[in-house]
Design a protein around this nucleic acid. Sequence first.
RNA 1: GUGGGUGUAGCUCAGCCGGUUAGAGCACCAGGUUGUGGCCCUGGUGGCCGGGGGUUCGAAUCCCCUCACUCACCCCA
Length: 421
Amino acid sequence: MSGAQQYKTLKGMQDILPPDTFLWQSVEQTARSIFSVFGFQEIRLPVLESTGVFSRSIGEQTDIVEKEMYTFTDKGGRSVSLRPEGTASVVRSYVENNLHNLPSPQKFYYSGPMFRYERPQSGRFRQFYQIGVEAFADPHPRMDAEVILMLERFLSGIGLQGISFQINSIGCEQCRPGYRDALLSFFSGKADQLCPDCLRRYDRNPLRILDCKSAKCIAARSGAPRITDHLCDDCRQHFGKLQELLNMLHVAFTVNPEMVRGLDYYTRTTFEVTSQGLGSQNAVAAGGRYNRLVREFGGPDTPAIGFAVGMERVIGLLKQSAAQEWPAPAVFIAARGEPAGTEALSLAGRLRDRGLWVEVGDAENSLKSQLRRADRISARHVFIIGDEELKSGQLRWKNLHDASQGVIMMTEIEEFISGIC
RNA sequence: GUGGGUGUAGCUCAGCCGGUUAGAGCACCAGGUUGUGGCCCUGGUGGCCGGGGGUUCGAAUCCCCUCACUCACCCCA
């Protein structure tokens, strides 16, 4: 190692390396195939947007917008930000491209990195990956149920265990202000019973007091009004119908009237999937309905619902339950000396054309050394080419799993391969 | 932004009441006679002991500062 500068990833950013990348690929593949059969189509969006895309949707007052965004001025003097979440960009794109002209409902999924300038901890990074979906133009709770069902299918499809679904309704512009007032008046005489954080929340976002973890606040909020008791008729019916549908679809869930979401744009249904064994950041996926956002972005009045899955959290759970496997090559070709080394390369090419993963040994090394390498990378079969084989037009094969071996003609190699692979 | 914990080889760690060239296991590479892996044996690559300063004849070891990582609060996927 010279005295040269050693670069490292920035705080909260990480390299994703093999064999983890294989796990990521399989999770992404499952997502694609499940979302596809539900009729969701992929969209790919920029990572950088006008800052307003996020501040106006997520909420000016939220922590995400106030202190967690990677915001800077570009060379044209515009304020731009790395996306801290996906929904705002999808809505921007929906409006910009007039996607409401596609047959309704319009259903999309996306995946990619998000950025938030936070203090990293277990399950929390500054660059993190989400797979998310958004469904537009269907106000009915059937769409809520379908989206939640799809999330459940996906999570069980990748083999996640021990997760639980919580759902809630946070009402709409008709009923939420009334509930907020009820909550404020309930806590107004109890300021001394709240933790310092919740005193702040009282002014900024009183609903958050409901999910504070401090023992004081848990005690102070007993008997607090519940959002589910303050829903207007339409919201109550919507929420009731959703529960009915989820039961019919056999999606296990619990209603949690204290569940609060951090983003301002939600209306009615919100939901969250949590897991034990994730540490403090235990949300695996979360989402909800946002019926006003498209309108606020200048589009037609269009209801919508979506969710996002935290990839690192899902991957973290999967790694706990199963050891990482390295994929292994089908064939390793060991050659001895120069003419054989060339022959090995040519044979490898033919086998790769048939879609096989083939590794070639270093013909300058001993056979023993090459076999050791083949074993280390768990190759299933070894072909051995040397002077003898070149003379006779044959080659020797060996199965490293059961140690069987034999000889075949070089010209019959393709048939032989199709018999064993 | 606020607290706690930890920094010695790629990984897991020992050494740390100061004392000659800083260790182990695993991993990686090679070899153990002519062309056969796993086990075993041998050898090799790899660390200015996170960085800087101080105390001392002498610091991985003691003191101070700093940085990084990590967990938690906050917030959230």
